[in-house]
Design a protein around this nucleic acid. Structure first.
Length: 271
DNA sequence: CGCTGACCCTGACGGC
DNA sequence: TGCCGTCAGGGTCAGC
């Protein structure tokens, strides 16, 4: 399941196989995911047309074509795969783009929390326009977080997981980044110093970079677009390790729930 | 405006 | 073996 590095890995995996190849067929097998799939619009605009680029914004993939743009979000359980020849779809294979050369781009999503949408102007789309800066971009920094955080009372973990503050930090990386920064997930956002925010912003950038380098985090059966699994799960320090010993000080890691998401931290290393 | 909790959906897993 | 409750990597939205 996709966090930002998985989405980036997916982009890099599928991009070489589909750019500038005309689309022959679009097969839609689900009526709706998070929102209804705009089947007619997709067919009217994309059949005979092709994608000239794919970009990522937060966890959205934007497939650009000359008539408009396809917006894809993988939700909790979605993935995109390249098939070099057409295979019979399984239960949760909701959408296929079949290209002129026989390549098939297939969207699979058991939980149907993903999104398939069409837009003329991604920057103005309601799901994109309020997103905060990219965590790997230049405008995301400790100073930015500090200024945005004053008088905020919510837990720091909820703050950095809010896509309007910074886009693309999911539960795994929020837990990991707070551990690396020595900050407890439940600490009130407004009480955190500028220096701590500098550490946190840097931790987030380092974490995401190294995860992307390793092809993302694979839990259960996530497979990137080029069918290679990621290896970052071997490096997780706190996520999924509740009750186990801290790698740094050997204390027993604690788990609490914040906004219905599991939050694991070291009671000694994080304060 | 800021924040919390309910909700969308399917599948896996543990306890009884 | 099956039934039930809980949990899962995301995100929106109503309501206080």
């Amino acid at each position: 399941m996709p966090e930002l590095p998985e989405v980036e890995t997916t982009l890099r995996g599928i991009e070489p196989h589909i750019l500038n190849i005309p689309i022959n067929k679009i097969l839609v097998r689900a009526k709706k995911l998070r929102w209804p799939i705009p089947e007619k619009t997709l067919k009217n605009n994309l059949i005979g047309n092709s994608f000239y680029s794919i970009n990522r914004r937060a966890k959205y993939l934007i497939f650009k074509s000359k008539l408009g743009h396809l917006l894809v979000h993988l939700g909790m359980s979605g993935c995109l795969k390249i098939l070099h020849r057409f295979d019979e779809p399984n239960k949760h294979d909701h959408l296929d783009f079949v290209f002129k050369n026989g390549t098939c781009l297939r969207f699979t999503d058991p939980r149907k929390f993903g999104s398939i949408l069409w837009t003329q102007d991604p920057e103005k789309h309601f799901l994109i326009k309020n997103l905060g800066p990219e965590p790997l971009g230049n405008s995301f920094s400790g100073t930015y977080l500090f200024e945005k955080s004053r008088r905020r009372k919510l837990p720091i973990k909820s703050f950095i997981m809010n896509a309007n503050v910074v886009s693309g930090i999911g539960n795994i990386y929020a837990n990991e980044a707070l551990f690396l920064s020595g900050i407890r997930p439940q600490k009130k956002t407004g009480t955190i110093s500028q220096k701590q925010f500098e550490t946190l912003a840097l931790s987030i950038k380092n974490l995401l970079h190294s995860s992307i380098d390793q092809g993302g985090t694979t839990l259960r059966d996530f497979v990137s677009g080029n069918n290679r699994p990621g290896y970052f799960q071997n490096e997780l320090l706190v996520y999924g390790r509740s009750g186990k010993n801290c790698f740094s000080c050997s204390s027993k890691l604690k788990e609490i729930r914040l906004a219905q998401r599991s939050s694991v931290y070291c009671p000694l290393c994080q304060s």
